[in-house]
């Protein structure tokens, strides 16, 4: 019977130890990270998502976008995320502290989306919105050969009643995708939210900890030598 008590006790101790070591310790440090106040800008970072984007985050979550897209930029030299233009810097823990559901993802069947808002911002029509609508409506329009499925169900083909909607997107689509005369294709509220979310994705602020990267010895020595030479 003693050995059984030992078994139960041992199991509990092992569980408690791993729980403490992996979760509790980190909850006390990483779990308590706060926003950084930048006196220069008079703002705290990370900034909260705009309301529409926060609702779009739920659309991103429920459509399972994270099955193919990560949201974590790896540091330069570890993979080539930087060379792919997926972010100016690697992601740090503080980037995520305001997000209700952190979807860093584990598969890269599509590109990393952590800074997709930065990539499309101000480009390709209406701050990138049009690009995203076309892409969601039919990925082949913007990215021929892509294996991303179409999200046509986020758009509505409806009869034009009175004035055509300013949001209508059929003008962006090729002839083959045009609705019948008198009809228009408009993004649903969910599509608008999703695109707002995607456009809000940009980790531009350089936190001090983002500089905590290893610099190879030869580089620092080289730098020191150069400084010495200047003197």
């Amino acid at each position: 019977m003693n050995r059984i008590a030992l078994l139960f006790l041992g199991l509990f101790a092992a569980l408690a130890a791993s729980w403490t070591g992996v979760i509790l310790v980190n909850q006390g440090s990483v779990g308590r990270l706060a926003r950084v106040v930048d006196a220069n800008e008079g703002l705290a970072f990370p900034q909260p998502m705009p309301g529409l984007a926060e609702q779009g985050h739920l659309v991103y979550q429920d459509l399972g976008c994270a099955a193919c897209h990560t949201q974590q930029v790896r540091r330069p030299g570890f993979g080539i995320d930087d060379k792919r233009g997926w972010g100016d810097r690697h992601s740090v823990a503080r980037d995520y502290i305001l997000e209700p559901r952190v979807l860093i993802g584990s598969h890269r069947i599509g590109p990393d989306l952590r800074n997709v808002g930065q990539r499309k911002d101000g480009q390709e029509g209406r701050d990138g919105r049009e690009w995203h609508y076309r892409h969601l409506y039919d990925p082949q329009l913007t990215s021929p050969g892509s294996v991303m499925p179409s999200f046509r169900f986020l758009f509505e083909t409806r009869k034009i009643v009175g004035e055509p909607s300013p949001k209508a997107i059929q003008g962006l689509l090729p002839a083959s995708s045009q609705p019948p005369a008198g009809y228009e294709i408009v993004p649903t509220v969910r599509a608008e939210r999703l695109v707002s979310y995607l456009l809000s994705l940009k980790d531009s602020y350089a936190y001090p900890e983002a500089a905590n990267v290893y610099v190879a010895k030869s580089e620092t020595q080289g730098g020191a030598a150069a400084e010495g030479a200047k003197k």
């Binding site: 979760i23 909850q27 997000e99």
Partner: peptide, 10 residues
Amino acid sequence: PVKGVMQPLV
């Protein structure tokens, strides 16, 4: 939900 990257960790 815990905050930030604690979520992937858990």
